[in-house]
């Protein structure tokens, strides 16, 4: 069946609501409005206002309510409109959801799924465009997923809900309109990275909204006779370092592409792990392609210049292969 990433998320949420009466979706405009990215359109009519619960603009309050509901036996899916807005709820995610199990000596698991849109590319300027998923990937107690394909959007939610601990799902807003054929009965391993394109000349390690750009760069490189392997991390915490190392041992060269800022980035963590695990497998110094160290600007040409682009990835590969 050919569906969009948006459809895939909606179908996954619908499946979850059908499968388990404890599941509910809550967030700003998830109900009558249909979701700010139209992910939940139609679900209110099917499941009613108890389970498709519109909230006031109270990120701290409704995420905290989600944490309490999870402790109380429900399986809430909490939608936060954007990663930038999630900072208003950071306390409940980092200081409570992630810590409660440990702080209570293992008495309280917090089975909450928190979904948020991330990323730039739509001229929404600095307060709607940042990629802060790396902040969540820093925190023990959380699992951080970044579905980059329609198939992952379709299949990641079920195992995330089955996880007894808090899961943050970060959806790049530029992906919602992407389309693919997705078979029925798809499953997803939320422990592992995935090779999206096999290759032997260089490993391109990426995740989320950068995946389509990296695949496009791999096409350009292939036309030049450079077969790049594209590895989609999929899970930012816990990082699947083994898959990164396996790819590197095949290619001996690596470029990490991450829409976050380079300083303190997930790309930096990936390179640090590579240095610890398999530095001597590298035949060339690694490279990172990240966003410029600037708040994302409004003007189209400046926004484009601030973000990782296909040309930049190709150029970085040329550097590590030269």
């Amino acid at each position: 069946m050919r569906i969009t990433y948006r459809d895939a998320m909606r179908l996954a949420i619908r499946d979850a609501l059908l499968a388990d009466p404890r599941v509910l979706l809550m967030g700003e405009d998830v109900g009558l409005y249909g979701g700010s990215y139209a992910v939940s359109k139609g679900l209110l009519d099917e499941f009613g206002p108890e389970r498709i619960r519109d909230t006031p603009l109270s990120e701290l309050g409704f995420v905290g309510a989600g944490v309490g509901a999870a402790i109380g036996g429900l399986r809430p899916i909490v939608e936060i409109m954007t990663c930038n807005f999630s900072l208003l709820a950071l306390d409940q995610i980092v200081n409570s959801a992630a810590l409660l199990r440990h702080m209570s000596g293992g008495q309280f698991s917090v089975p909450i799924v928190i979904r948020m849109a991330t990323g730039a590319g739509r001229q929404l300027a600095a307060q709607h465009s940042h990629s802060l998923e790396n902040w969540y990937a820093h925190v023990p107690g959380l699992r951080v997923l970044t579905p980059a394909t329609v198939a992952d959007a379709r299949a990641m939610l079920a195992p995330a809900l089955a996880d007894p601990d808090p899961v943050v799902i970060v959806e790049h807003a530029a992906l919602y309109n992407t389309e693919a054929d997705v078979p029925e009965g798809l499953t997803c391993d939320i422990e592992r990275a995935a090779v999206r394109r096999p290759g032997s000349a260089v490993s391109l390690v990426t995740y989320g909204g950068s995946l389509p750009k990296v695949l496009a760069a791999a096409d350009v490189l292939a036309a030049e006779g450079i077969e790049a392997e594209v590895l989609d991390l999929r899970v930012l915490r816990p990082l699947d370092v083994a898959s990164v190392a396996t790819s590197l041992r095949r290619t001996h060269r690596v470029v990490v592409v991450d829409e976050g800022w380079k300083t303190g980035s997930l790309a930096g963590e990936v390179l640090a792990r590579i240095a610890e695990e398999c530095l001597f497998d590298l035949d060339a110094p690694p490279r990172r392609v990240c966003s410029a160290e600037v708040p994302i600007p409004y003007a189209k040409h400046l926004e484009d210049a601030a973000l990782p682009q296909v040309e930049g990835v190709v150029a970085a590969v040329h550097q590590v292969i030269a």
């Binding site: 905290g64 989600g66 109380g72 429900l74």
Partner: peptide, 27 residues
């Protein structure tokens, strides 16, 4: 904390128990 007695802590972030109370009541 004591899960067997519905005692949910024990929080040191001032005010952080209130939203969770709302969620527990929702559950």
């Amino acid at each position: 904390f004591d899960s067997s007695r519905r005692f949910y802590g024990g929080t040191a972030i001032v005010g952080s128990g209130l939203p969770q109370a709302v969620g527990l009541a929702l559950a």
